[in-house]
């Protein structure tokens, strides 16, 4: 009886010892010399492996940071605080980058943009985009099947079932850029968050002539150019019947928002305007109709001239 127990213990102990030695030898033999700083940097990173930096994951980012320096790479998820810490750890200095956020440049919600066909295939934006312009007459607009939502690792972008458009949760968005790549219509853009989160942007991608765009969608940019004329900072350019606001030049005066006849220019996170300035202006969704209808005729003229 006793001998059995002793034998068992002895066998197991010897076996364990032998295996430990084998493991040690193997570990020594195949040891990979790695810069310990890579581990340090990796531990500082958010660990989302989102690929927003352009690398395969956080480990790859850390390797690149150690080997090539921080000059050309940036972790959009961790942002400036994390980048500062990494720079300290590596003994480098870096400039702070302006924080960015994903912005949806389409305001063609279901009530503004009629469905003209019934799409009956696989419900992804990429499939629709490879087949035709989309189930509305606007072939530049959001397809609403949520490819952006599917790729977002931070639960920050969601299709609103009421409008059929994606909405970005600014708190959660890390500006990793996954949605901008997933969107087959290039509707989502990374823009500077702006002071106090205030931003002004053109929420439309329609590059058709004014009349065509207008017919397809009530909220489309018709390329009338009023905003560009109004802008005191030359931040707005109109190309292919589509206005674009350069966020590095925009000074948030919001004159263009008031001027836009279709409500395609959006302002976010501003305090409400004093009622005296203009009643119809604040934020786009509710305002679009009352503004649009009386001004429609005025709008068409500059477009015709352009032709």
């Amino acid at each position: 009886m006793n001998t059995t127990i002793i034998f068992t213990i002895a066998t197991l102990a010897i076996l364990g010892l032998l295996l430990a030695i084998v493991l040690y030898i193997v570990a020594q033999k195949f040891k990979v010399e790695e810069d310990p700083r890579i581990d340090t940097v990796e531990s500082l990173l958010p660990g989302a492996n989102c690929g927003g930096c352009g690398k395969a994951g956080c480990r790859a980012f850390a390797e690149a940071a150690v080997k090539e320096g921080l000059g050309s790479i940036h972790c959009p998820v961790g942002g400036n605080p994390v980048m500062q810490k990494i720079a300290e750890a590596l003994g480098q200095t870096i400039e702070a980058k302006d924080p960015q956020v994903a912005v949806v440049r389409c305001s063609g919600s279901c009530d503004k943009r009629k469905k003209t066909t019934v799409y009956d295939g696989l419900a992804t934006c990429a499939t629709i985009a490879s087949l035709y312009g989309g189930d509305t007459d606007c072939r530049f607009g959001c397809l609403g099947r949520g490819d952006c939502e599917a790729v977002c690792k931070f639960d920050a972008i969601k299709i609103n079932p009421k409008t059929g458009l994606p909405e970005v949760d600014e708190e959660k968005c890390t500006a990793c850029g996954a949605c901008t790549k997933a969107c087959p219509k290039q509707i989502i853009e990374l823009r500077n968050k702006g002071p106090k989160g205030r931003r002004v942007y053109v929420a439309c991608r329609n590059q058709d002539k004014g009349a065509v765009a207008r017919k397809a969608c009530l909220a489309a940019c018709i390329g009338c150019g009023k905003c560009a004329k109004t802008c005191p900072f030359e931040a707005i350019t109109v190309e292919n019947f589509l206005a674009y606001i350069d966020y590095t030049k925009c000074r948030m005066c919001r004159k263009c928002v008031v001027e836009c006849p279709t409500g395609a220019i959006h302002e976010v996170n501003f305090p409400p305007r004093p009622a005296a300035v203009k009643p119809a202006a604040p934020a786009a969704p509710a305002a679009a109709k009352p503004v649009a209808e009386p001004q429609e005729k005025k709008v068409e003229i500059p477009v015709e001239k352009k032709d």
Binding site: K115, T116, T117, V118, Y119, D120, G121, L122, T127, L131, Y132, D135
Partner: peptide, 8 residues
């Protein structure tokens, strides 16, 4: 009718 569109 409103046209149905789908891939083949």
């Amino acid at each position: 009718n409103t046209l149905i569109v789908s891939p083949s």
